Computed example of a mutant assay.
Amino acid sequence: MQKRSYNIIFNACLKKAGMLLFFLLLPANSVFMQSNENHPYQEQQEAMVRNQIIARGIKSKTVTDAMRKVPRHMFVPYNTRTFAYNDQPLPIGHNQTISQPYIVAYMTEALDAKAGDKVLEIGTGSGYQAAILAEMGIEVYTIEIIPELAETAKRNLKRTGYNNVNTRLGDGYAGWPDEAPFDAIIITAAPETIPQALVEQLKTGGTMILPVGPRESTQSLKKVVKRSKGIRQTTLLPVRFVPMIRSYN
């Protein structure tokens, strides 16, 4: 009986060692991505893409594929996860929100960025927009002015496997001059006018997508294309975003 007990213990140890070796040999994000693909909100996520995004005219397969893969519920507070795939923005704390899924898709498609592009995001929030861009193979640089949100976004991006996003705490109006120029810039809060410093950090021919307008009124989502002499602006649709701020106390 004692010999049999030793054999059972020995075999159990071998099994554990084998499982450990199996996980060590997997690619770095394989275990996580498998759990993402089978998360409890999978049906809601697919319905979100089908009914809120594709049905409203988003045609980019790269964008819709990213919206299918990035687990939106991991980028909202725990007590709002059941609403993560609803057709609405959600609060993420500090008077900030995560945008409605359709708006995220619309802005991402309008940005017209492709894999390998270098994109600056102003307003990291909870990290969801940055994750969508990273999922598309884009090199992301993102700035958040609220310290608590910057830390939350770092944690969210890390635990969802998007370790290639460059994050920074700072004033979005100043941009990230050390990493300029950028192929594209996306702003997820509304300045009252287009920030000139960000235009200067955009490549000639590059695109900037941003809401513009005062807090008290409906803002306009703008597409700005930088030319060799000046910029060309196009108004896309009316929106309502939190204001883009210069300081946070």
Rank of each mutant, 00 (worst) to 15 (best):
E37D: 15
L133C: 07
R159G: 05
T235P: 01
L221I: 01
Q201V: 00
L120S: 06
P211I: 08
V224P: 06
F22Y: 15
A110T: 12
L24F: 12
N163I: 11
R4Q: 11
I58H: 04
Y248P: 01
K61P: 05
T108L: 08
Y85V: 09
G170V: 08
N36M: 15
E46A: 13
S5F: 04
Q233C: 12
R4G: 10
P77Q: 06
A110L: 11
S60M: 10
T124S: 11
R215K: 08
L14M: 15
T207C: 10
K114E: 13
P177G: 06
L236G: 02
L198I: 11
Q45R: 14
I145Y: 10
T207S: 10
Q52F: 09
E109A: 08
T207H: 02
S30Y: 13
I122G: 00
I186G: 07
N38D: 11
L169R: 03
K203E: 14
P181I: 00
P71T: 06
A105L: 03
T234I: 13
I122T: 05
V199M: 07
A130Q: 05
V119L: 11
T218C: 03
E148Y: 10
L202P: 03
I194M: 01
N79G: 04
A17V: 09
F32W: 06
V165M: 08
D171L: 01
V31W: 07
E148R: 05
Y162K: 14
E109W: 04
P181Y: 00
P195F: 01
M107Q: 12
M74W: 06
A12Y: 14
M48D: 08
S126I: 02
N95D: 13
G125Q: 00
V224S: 09
G206C: 09
R81C: 07
T235A: 03
Y41C: 01
K114D: 04
M136G: 02
Q219S: 07
A84V: 05
T108K: 01
Y162L: 10
G127N: 03
N166D: 04
R72C: 04
Y106M: 13
N36S: 14
Q196K: 14
P238L: 03
L149T: 02
L14V: 15
A55D: 05
Q100D: 09
S5V: 04
G205C: 13
K3S: 13
I185W: 03
K16A: 15
P77A: 02
L20S: 15
V104R: 00
F75V: 11
K223R: 15
I9L: 14
T124H: 00
G116Y: 04
L111Q: 09
Q100R: 12
V199C: 10
D117V: 03
G125A: 02
N166P: 05
F10T: 11
Y162C: 10
V212S: 05
G230S: 06
Q100A: 07
V224R: 08
Q201S: 06
G123A: 00
Y85D: 10
G123R: 00
S35L: 12
N86Q: 13
I138F: 12
Q219V: 09
M244D: 01
Y41F: 15
Y173A: 02
M74N: 02
K203V: 06
Q45N: 14
P214A: 11
T142Q: 05
Y248N: 09
A180Y: 02
R50F: 07
K223D: 02
K69I: 07
G230K: 05
Y248E: 08
A184R: 08
Q2G: 11
H39Y: 13
V140M: 00
K16Q: 12
T167P: 05
M107A: 08
M107V: 04
T188M: 02
